[in-house]
Design a protein around this nucleic acid. Structure first.
Length: 150
DNA sequence: GCCAACGTTGGC
DNA sequence: GCCAACGTTGGC
């Protein structure tokens, strides 16, 4: 899952009560579907910092609550307000995410792009703009194996 | 700040 | 249903 650290960083997550926060503001159908249909309690998730000095994977979190309506879509004062999302038939969903740990170092996007093992990983594919994307077990293990290097 | 690559919108 | 125009994302 991506977030701009100026908006919400892994430190912000770590400092939340219970180190837990709802992942609101996703307004893309593909990303929504993954939260709504695929993310289950106990699933491990990489936290990715985007749009910053060193874009990359910075930590690990865990799903602690499965899909429920993103209430920020109902609030006209909220940045992510969407008048088309009806509380009786919500368009947008979110999950709750809990801090697990920071990686010992940021694993930069630049480095991930150089790895033939990650050719199929959506994050490094051209033009990818999804803020949430699936990680296979193989990709997960490989990425974690990079943590202690260089 | 630029711009490529998308996704969404809305006229027809 | 097509597609041009527009808006957003996000690396660089």
């Amino acid at each position: 899952m991506k977030s701009e650290p100026t908006e919400f960083s892994i430190d912000d997550l770590q400092n939340m009560p219970n180190q837990t926060e709802h992942w609101d503001g996703v307004r893309n159908y593909q990303a929504r579907n993954m939260m709504r249909d695929d993310m289950k309690i106990g699933d491990q998730v990489f936290f990715y910092h985007s749009n910053c000095d060193e874009p990359g994977i910075v930590g690990i979190m865990e799903v602690v609550r499965e899909s429920y309506p993103d209430f920020t879509a109902f609030d006209p004062d909220d940045k992510h307000f969407d008048p088309k999302s009806d509380p009786n038939n919500p368009r947008w969903f979110m999950v709750d995410i809990k801090f697990n740990r920071k990686l010992d170092r940021t694993i930069p996007l630049k480095e991930l792009k150089q790895k033939p093992e990650l050719e199929e990983f959506p994050l490094v594919r051209r033009g990818n703009r999804l803020s949430i994307m699936p990680v296979t077990k193989q990709q997960w293990d490989f990425i974690l194996s990079l943590e202690q290097k260089s």
